[in-house]
Simulated assay, not measured.
Amino acid sequence: MRWSSYLSPTDGREHPAVVSGGALHGLRTATRLIDLLGDDGERLARAGEEALADPLDVVPEGEARLLAPIPAPPSVRDFYAFETHVRTYREANGQQMDPGWYELPVFYFQNPAAIRSAREEIPMSPGSVQFDFELELAAVIGCGGADLRPEEAERHIAGYTLFCDWSARDLQAREMRQGLGPVKGKDTATSLGPWLITPDELEPHRAGVSFDLEMRAAVNGRPCSKGNAADLYWSFGQMVAYASRGTRVQTGDVIGSGTVGTGCILELAAVHGEQAYPWLTPGDEVRLEVDLLGAITARITEAGPLHPLT
């Protein structure tokens, strides 16, 4: 099934909805999609049947006031799992692959309060002039767990969604020179959605450790990125297992894949130059797409105020 979260025109509140036949079929009996997770998927399946049989609303996809599928996840971890992206950027800067990358599926934590829907405008980060998109996909944890093995960890995934990690590259570079970060370089916005796709929908597209799903990005209508989810080096099972090592993953946690090869300006500009692939500026229109998962469409807006610290 395809799920979403939206604001109902009937009561003005957040509701989960099944997306079918080009429309959202709102669920009457729950106000958050995360409340339907937490088991092996049976609760979500039953709710889907209920929404289709007796919907609160039937809203055409293009008219729905979409939210992120999980508007306020407990945590957001973003991994670094596409080898092509890592290798291309490193080699363009005269660096070799670190052998440790093949031993640990590293990640950093993002800001759950910065989650945006797939149709929201995105403000630039205050103080940044090197603003970037990142074309990714993500898994959402259904049933929590601790110290999971990779072969069992994938069964804890409730579904998959499109993910964009908006990045202030100049802020990120300054922060990481201090041995910490990224912090404010990744703190302003993360787009999720538009849909949460249950694993059974993607299983026919299984390829290697991932799925055969084409991934594309365009800025102001100009195609600039193209990759495939099947190019993942680390599987989502491995990522979730590593995230749960020595701790717990919780229902609703978001696990980002990291950027697909060619999937950000940082990589493209390192190879082809900033003149060929300039940084995002207010007014730019960004469209990110992944087969079956839908599209994020975002207009970049001015940053908020930059208040001096000293």
Results as ranks from 00 to 15, higher is better:
Arg32Glu: 02
Leu268Ala: 05
Glu285Ile: 08
Val271Leu: 04
Pro60Ala: 07
Ala72Ser: 11
Val254Trp: 14
Val219Ile: 12
Glu63Phe: 14
Val19Asp: 02
Ile34Tyr: 08
Ala92Ser: 14
Arg90Val: 12
Thr29Asn: 13
Leu171Trp: 09
Tyr89Pro: 01
Lys184Thr: 10
His272Thr: 02
Tyr80Lys: 06
Arg116Glu: 01
Thr10Cys: 08
Tyr233Lys: 07
Leu36Thr: 00
Glu201Lys: 11
Pro305Cys: 03
Pro150His: 09
Arg116Val: 01
Ser210Pro: 05
Gly144Thr: 05
Asn228Val: 08
Asp284Ile: 05
Asp78Asn: 04
Ala207Cys: 10
Arg216Ile: 14
Gly94Asp: 08
Gly221Thr: 01
Ser167His: 04
Pro16Thr: 01
Leu162Thr: 01
Ala138Asp: 10
Leu66Phe: 13
Glu151Arg: 11
Ile157Asp: 03
Glu203Trp: 14
Leu192Met: 09
Gly181Tyr: 06
Tyr242Leu: 06
Glu63Arg: 07
Leu66Gln: 03
Arg248Ala: 07
Tyr102Pro: 00
Leu27Ser: 04
His25Ala: 01
Thr310Ala: 13
Ala230His: 11
Val76Gly: 11
Asn93Phe: 11
Val140Lys: 09
Arg65Ala: 09
Ile115Gln: 12
Arg149Tyr: 15
Leu162Asp: 00
Ile141Pro: 14
Ala81Thr: 02
Gly256Pro: 05
Val260Ser: 11
Val18Glu: 00
His15Ala: 02
Val183Trp: 10
Val254Ser: 06
Gly38Glu: 06
Ala17Glu: 03
Ala118Trp: 14
Gly227Asn: 08
Glu42Lys: 06
Gly12Asp: 00
Ser8Asp: 01
Pro204Met: 13
Glu175Ile: 03
Glu42His: 10
Pro308Leu: 15
Ala189Gln: 00
Ser20Gly: 00
Thr198Glu: 07
Pro74Met: 09
Arg2Glu: 07
Glu289Ser: 09
Thr297Tyr: 15
Gly159Ala: 10
Trp195Ser: 03
Thr297Val: 13
Glu285Met: 14
Pro123Phe: 06
Glu134Val: 12
Gly208Cys: 11
His25Val: 00
Ile70Phe: 09
Leu268Thr: 00
Leu266Met: 07
Arg116Thr: 00
Phe82His: 06
Gly283Thr: 08
Ser117His: 04
Arg90Ala: 14
Ala113Glu: 05
Ala53Gln: 06
Ala92Met: 14
Lys226His: 13
Pro69Ala: 14
Gly179Cys: 04
Glu214Ile: 07
Leu192Gln: 02
Val19Met: 06
Asp291Glu: 13
Leu7Ile: 09
Lys226Glu: 12
Arg169Ile: 02
Gly62His: 05
Ile115Arg: 08
Trp166Lys: 00
Arg28Asn: 08
Pro69Tyr: 12
Leu148Pro: 11
Met124Trp: 07
Ser191Tyr: 08
Glu267Gly: 05
Ala229Cys: 11
Cys143Ser: 13
Tyr80Leu: 09
